[in-house]
C-alpha cells in the first residue's frame, strides 16, 4: 500500500508554505523558497509539468514586470520618465521594478506549494480523513475535484468541435473573443448539468448519504509523519524568528533597503530547515520508492 503524507501534516504544510510565500519579502529568501520547491517538485516526477508551466510563468512574469512599474509610480530612484498616449505621464522606478520581481517570485512559490501539496497526498485518503469532521461537504468536494479532469477533457473536445463549425476562438478583441467562447461554455455547462444528474443517480444507487459511513483505510500518523511534523514545527519557529528579527523583511519603498542586518547564520539555518522540510515531505509521500526508512 502506498503511504502518502498524513493529512493533518499536509494541511499544516500547505498553510505554512503559503504563509511563507506571502510573508517573506526578502528577495533572497523568496528566491530560495522557489528554488527549493522547484527541485522538490521536479524530484517528485513533476519535471514535465514544470516545463509546461514555464511558458505560463515567463509570460505572467513578464506581464507583472511590465504592468506593476506602470501602475506603481512610488520609489526614489527613477529609471526613466515618459508620456504615453491615453496612459499619460509614466515614471518607472527601480523600487517598483524590484517589487514586481518579488510578486513574480510569490506567484511562482504559491503555484509550486499547491503542486507539492497535490503530489504529497492521496486524494481519496485526504478527503476520507476530512470527511470524518465535515462529512458530506468534504465528500462532495472530493467528487467535484475528480470531475475537474473530465471537465478539462470536455472543454478541449468541445473547442475542437466548435472550431470545426467555424467558430473563431482565436482572433479579434477581448469582447469578440468572450462572445465566441459563449457557445462553448454553454455546451460544457449543459453537459455538466446533465452529467451531474447521472452522477447523483450513481451515488444514490451506491447508498451515498443513506447512513453512518465507515472508512476503508485507517489513516494513522506514523513515525515518519511525527518526525515530519517536528521538522515542520522547527521551520515554523525559524520562520517566526526571521520575521520577528526582520531578517525576512525587505523595504521596497521609498527606496530599497533590508529591514534587518543580513545574518549568514540565519540564512544557513533557514535554508537547512526549509530544505529538510521539503525533502522530508517528498520522502514521506513516496517512501515506498525510497531506501530511506525510519
Amino acid at each position: 500500500m502506498c503511504h502518502k503524507l498524513y493529512p493533518a501534516n499536509a494541511i499544516v504544510l500547505l498553510v505554512v508554505l503559503i504563509a511563507a510565500s506571502l510573508l517573506v519579502s526578502h528577495p533572497l529568501y523568496a528566491a530560495l523558497l522557489v528554488l527549493v520547491l522547484s527541485f522538490s517538485v521536479a524530484a517528485f516526477g513533476g519535471a514535465g509539468e514544470l516545463k509546461g508551466l514555464l511558458r505560463f510563468w515567463i509570460v505572467t512574469g513578464v506581464m507583472i514586470l511590465i504592468i506593476n512599474p506602470l501602475v506603481s509610480t512610488q520609489g526614489d530612484n527613477v529609471l526613466f520618465r515618459t508620456v504615453l498616449p491615453i496612459v499619460g505621464r509614466i515614471r518607472v522606478t527601480v523600487e517598483s521594478l524590484a517589487f514586481a520581481g518579488l510578486m513574480v517570485l510569490r506567484l511562482f512559490s504559491m503555484v509550486l506549494v499547491i503542486k507539492l501539496f497535490g503530489l504529497s497526498i492521496d486524494r481519496d485518503d485526504f478527503f476520507g480523513y476530512l470527511s470524518r469532521y465535515m462529512n458530506k461537504l468534504v465528500l462532495t468536494m472530493s467528487m467535484t475535484v475528480n470531475v475537474i479532469h473530465r471537465l478539462r477533457v470536455e472543454i478541449h473536445r468541445v473547442s475542437e468541435v466548435m472550431a470545426m463549425r467555424g467558430l473563431d476562438l482565436k482572433s479579434g478583441g477581448l469582447v469578440r473573443r468572450i462572445k465566441a467562447y459563449y457557445p462553448m461554455i454553454k455546451v460544457v455547462l449543459i453537459s455538466s448539468l446533465e452529467g451531474s444528474v447521472n452522477r447523483a443517480e450513481a451515488l444514490y444507487s451506491r447508498g451515498y448519504g443513506k447512513g453512518k459511513r465507515s472508512f476503508y483505510r485507517e489513516i494513522e500518523m506514523t513515525g515518519r509523519d511525527r518526525i515530519h511534523m517536528f521538522v515542520l514545527c522547527v521551520y515554523i519557529f525559524v520562520l517566526a524568528l526571521g520575521i520577528a528579527r526582520g531578517w525576512l523583511g525587505f523595504g521596497y519603498f521609498p527606496s530599497i533597503s533590508p529591514k534587518g542586518d543580513f545574518s549568514a547564520a540565519y540564512f544557513a539555518l533557514h535554508a537547512a530547515s526549509l530544505g529538510t522540510l521539503i525533502e522530508m515531505t517528498r520522502r514521506c509521500s513516496a517512501w515506498k520508492f525510497s531506501a530511506w526508512k525510519i
Binding site: 451506491r206 447508498g207 451515498y208 448519504g209 443513506k210 447512513g211 459511513r213 465507515s214 472508512f215 476503508y216
Partner: peptide, 13 residues
C-alpha cells in the same frame, strides 16, 4: 465506496 456508505466494518470491506 458503497461499502463505506453502508458503514461496513473495515476488515470485511
Amino acid at each position: 465506496f458503497p461499502l463505506e456508505n453502508r458503514g461496513v466494518e473495515r476488515n470485511f470491506m
